[in-house]
């Protein structure tokens, strides 16, 4: 498998074609908007957080295959997690897509492991992490528009 095929794995292409949890979340308790000015990606992440647990999470927006698949898989993974677990998952995910070393607990990442190929494409790290930054921003409730720049 070459680096390109590693980046665009079938799982990613599938989530790009049929993103999960895409749409408005009516009873959201928090939300945030994120931009990647480099490529024009725009995303809105909305969550229902009760007693420190993410009960539901959805996203809307437009972006490349990597950013869409990342949001799709992120929302699938986060449902049912505590806020603290979500933070920890983000840290592990961030390490996976940015660091050269293999010092990542792949097992804890589950489906997110398909993004391992991103690290070979530094220009695409922001695409993969935009939804995560936006999610964190929504939970922290700063309400500010975030940008990857």
């Amino acid at each position: 498998m070459n680096e390109l095929q590693e980046l665009y794995q079938q799982v990613i292409l599938d989530h790009n074609r049929n993103p999960r949890n895409y749409g408005e979340l009516q009873d959201a308790t928090c939300s945030a908007e994120g931009f990647n000015p480099l490529c024009g990606d725009q995303i809105n992440v909305a969550l229902v957080v009760k007693d420190g647990v993410i009960e539901d999470v959805k996203f809307t927006g437009s972006g490349c295959a990597i950013s869409k698949a990342s949001a799709s898989i992120m929302t699938s993974v986060l449902k049912g997690k505590t806020v603290a677990e979500a933070e920890q998952t983000f840290d592990t995910f961030h390490h996976l897509v940015t660091e050269e070393d293999d010092d990542v607990d792949m097992e804890s990442l589950g489906k997110l492991a398909v993004f391992a190929g991103v690290r070979e494409f530094p220009a695409r790290v922001k695409c993969a992490s935009l939804c995560w930054h936006t999610m964190r921003n929504a939970i922290e409730g700063s309400g500010e528009i975030i940008s990857t720049e």
Binding site: L7, C39, A65
Partner: peptide
Amino acid sequence: DIHPHDIGTFLDREGVAIRTGH
């Protein structure tokens, strides 16, 4: 419906440099 950023990455690996974005 293929996003330009994905196209740009693919072309790059073929040695082709184009601009994708706004």
